[in-house]
Design a protein around this nucleic acid. Structure first.
Lengths: 240, 240
DNA sequence: TTGCTCCTCACGTCACGTGAGGTGGC
DNA sequence: TTGCTCCTCACGTCACGTGAGGTGGC
């Protein structure tokens, strides 16, 4: 009793389309046909199909299966290489799961760098954006430092005031804020000295790094905020 | 200082082609251009690109990222679903790794069902083929029993003789072999009673199951071997 | 005639990658 | 002129899946 394509597929636990796909790749021999063109499979086809499925399930590509042919049933070297790939893959997926777990646990936004989902619920949009950019510019150890800094920081009234500063704030408001902001900023810089000389990310050129920080500040803070930052730096410089 | 496509890609740790791909999907806004048609990116584009990469790295599809839009940064439900998928994936990959490890350790062929790589080095091509087919017909508990049976069996001279029997063996040879094979076969059947009534695999119809076993025997054993099997069964029946 | 199975052929999926062919500034 | 970067557009990858359109036996 020969089998139809559907029956063969069912016996092998796969689909009709898969069987036809293997035909088109020359992996599985096309069987004889009845007068009306229906294909007729026998046990030989089933065995071959099961061999292909087995190798495919083990992660061997169809191209590799084709190049091995039906006889070579001991692809030791190929399997070793595949195993390494799978191991790396599992590691990556595990890391992703840990990230997701942390995000879900802390109900944290996803527009933050990896590892920043714990204890940083209070960040503004601009802060999250700049952290994302920093994660591409600074080394991972610097980012670790930065993360602790963000976690430590008590969202002071000065911070909130800075975030809320309108672009058209008048000179007096800006100067007053800068005078309160300067000591705050100084404290931050003193506790985290690497902020002064941004260590460029390995893959990015030094020229780009500077331009990125400039652009980021321009894009993420309004004119008044930038002015307050400049004034604060001047105050710090004058004191030093 | 605006950035070129290549610079933007480099800053985000990705490729030029990826950036263009996101443009084509409408995920990333196409920036203004210089007079010669070169694209000019700013920090806003970099932030958006990094957000997309972050979500993509977490396993969110580009279609989902597109449907979320730039504002919704808390895709809790989506992440939970993705996490389940990843967990299942890791489990599958772990099982595959265990299979590969066993195959490599025992230097076993791959044209055997899953779980059969230990201690079955002596099997003939036909045996391996029929085991593959059985793995689709019998329940996993029956296969477990079968595996132990295969592991236990000492490759007796009778087995070797049966495997080597030429298709055109004469009557005398076949009868002599059958008389030695029958007690061997009886012992196997008595130790493994489920062999008598093949429990059909859940997904395959009963009609198919019978046809498969018939076809498999036809295809995998030669005429003389089938004759010897029939004679052996007759001997057993006569004795019972 | 209706419903079911089988067939082939073309195109779609997913997230990009690979050229091909052309332009612009040094 | 050479070499480098940028651009667009078409097609390729991987392992199939999804129809479209047609045939054959009950």
């Amino acid at each position: 009793v020969p089998w139809s394509t559907r029956q063969l597929a069912e016996l092998a636990g796969t689909t009709v389309k898969t069987v036809r796909h293997y035909h088109s790749l020359g992996l599985l021999e096309v069987p004889a046909r009845t007068s009306n063109g229906y294909k007729q499979y026998d046990a030989g086809h089933l065995v071959r199909l099961l061999q292909i499925r087995r190798l495919s399930d083990l992660g061997v590509s169809l191209a590799q299966i084709a190049s091995m042919g039906a006889e070579d049933a001991e692809p030791g070297e190929a399997l070793r290489a595949i195993d390494e790939e799978i191991a790396a893959n599992i590691e990556r997926l595990r890391a992703v799961r840990a990230e997701i777990a942390s995000i879900v646990l802390h109900d944290s936004p996803t527009d933050l760098p990896a590892g920043f989902s714990e204890g940083v619920a209070e960040l503004s949009d601009a802060d999250r954006s700049i952290l994302l950019i920093y994660s591409r510019l600074f080394s991972s150890t610097a980012m670790e430092d930065l993360r602790e800094m963000v976690m430590d920081r008590h969202r002071t009234p000065v911070d909130a005031e800075f975030d809320a500063l309108p672009a058209d704030a008048d000179d007096e408001t800006k100067q007053a804020l800068a005078e309160r902001y300067a000591p705050h900023l100084l404290g931050v810089i003193e506790r985290h000295p690497w902020l002064k000389d941004p260590l460029a990310h390995a893959s990015t050129s030094a020229a780009l790094t500077g331009s990125v920080i400039g652009e980021a500040v321009d894009a993420l803070y309004n004119a008044a905020q930038i002015d307050v930052l400049a004034r604060s730096h001047r105050i710090i410089a004058d004191q030093g």
